[in-house]
Amino acid sequence: MRILVLGSTGYLGGHIADRLRALPGVRLLTGGRHPDNDLRVDLATIAPSALAELVELAAPDAVVNCVGAAGGGALALVEANSRGPAVLCEALHSAAPTARLVHLGSVAEYGPTILGEQTPEEAPARPVSVYGASKLAGSLAVAASGLDAVVLRVTDPVGPGAPRAGLPGRLTAELRDALRLDLPGPVQVDDLSAHRDFVDVRDVATAAALALTAPRPLPPLLNIGSGHAVPVRDLVHGLVRASGYRGRVEEALGAVGRSPAVPWQCARITAARRELGWQPTHTLHASLTALWSADGAPARELR
């Protein structure tokens, strides 16, 4: 089975590529802007006809699209998160119409949800940020494409290799600097009062692998999360404990961001369990330990 992973050098894409390499009978192809990719392609700018030519040569049986942007302004977000999936779908229609497409969406597409409840796939999507709106447009393009396609709407990923663009990766880097330079602190963070559904990046990779190889057509949308919401404060304090950092963590209460607009996120994951036979296997404890230990730093016991 030939599987093309677009965005294989990113956080989610890298873990998904590693997971697929371990599957018997899979020939992995990578696509993106990195020089080592099998297909040198930028979904934000390439024409559908040019992408179709590359896809036809690659002849994939399945494609997973991990390409996306989380920052860089409205234009960059729309080009990567909205235009990219639409161009990919058009190219697949002409070059690989029977290939299964697994597209990674985002929980930000939902926007505000009901406090204390799990959000099902049929809940209305009302994103409050350009990022969420751009991801939603891309997911809608995939859902309306007529391809054998599924959108995996992923909650907040955490685990080894988390990038600095998100809170787990940024805080990890700041704690490493504080310990390396023996800085007394404080380490400053934004308002941590929101509740989030943190899912281990390795569990996301397993879900993508199952979706790519499922023997039957899948629903157009599946939530991928832990099914539990925890205060963001729990993640921060857990990571601090894992690091052994003894300085203060200073929280900017009421800081402006998406948390005040979306105080609660928690995905219902029963459909993914039913359709994929998937369930998360890593606890937040395990995710934070793996995140801190990823670069060889010993993790303290989390209590």
Rank of each mutant, 00 (worst) to 15 (best):
V67Y: 05
N65S: 15
G116C: 06
G84I: 05
Y110D: 01
L75H: 13
T113M: 04
P85W: 06
E79H: 13
L57H: 09
E79I: 04
E109H: 03
S82T: 10
L88D: 10
G105F: 07
L75S: 15
V107Y: 00
V63G: 02
A74C: 11
P60I: 06
V87S: 04
S94W: 13
A58F: 12
A76Q: 08
A76W: 02
E90Y: 09
A96Y: 09
D61F: 10
P85R: 05
A80R: 03
G71A: 13
C66M: 12
G68A: 06
S94P: 01
N65L: 08
G111L: 01
A80T: 12
G105L: 04
P112W: 11
G116S: 11
P85Q: 14
T113V: 12
L88S: 00
H103K: 02
L104G: 12
G105V: 11
L104S: 05
A59S: 15
V87Y: 04
P112N: 14
V107L: 07
E90W: 13
D61M: 11
A76G: 09
A95E: 08
L104H: 03
L104V: 14
S94I: 06
G68V: 06
R100H: 10
S94A: 14
E109Y: 04
L104F: 09
G84R: 03
N65M: 10
A62V: 15
V63I: 15
R100K: 13
A76F: 04
E90G: 10
V63R: 00
A74D: 15
G105S: 10
G111H: 03
R100M: 05
L101K: 09
A108C: 12
L77K: 05
G73D: 15
L75M: 12
A74E: 14
V107E: 07
L88Q: 05
L75E: 13
A99I: 09
L115R: 12
V67T: 07
H103A: 05
G73R: 07
L104Y: 04
Y110C: 09
L115A: 13
L88M: 13
P112H: 12
A62F: 07
A86M: 02
G72F: 04
A58D: 05
A58K: 01
A80S: 14
A80Y: 01
A80I: 11
H103E: 09
A99P: 07
G68N: 05
N81I: 02
A70G: 14
R100P: 01
L75V: 15
G73I: 04
A74G: 08
H93T: 15
R83Y: 15
S82L: 10
E90K: 15
S94L: 11
A91H: 00
I114S: 13
I114H: 12
G116L: 06
A69I: 11
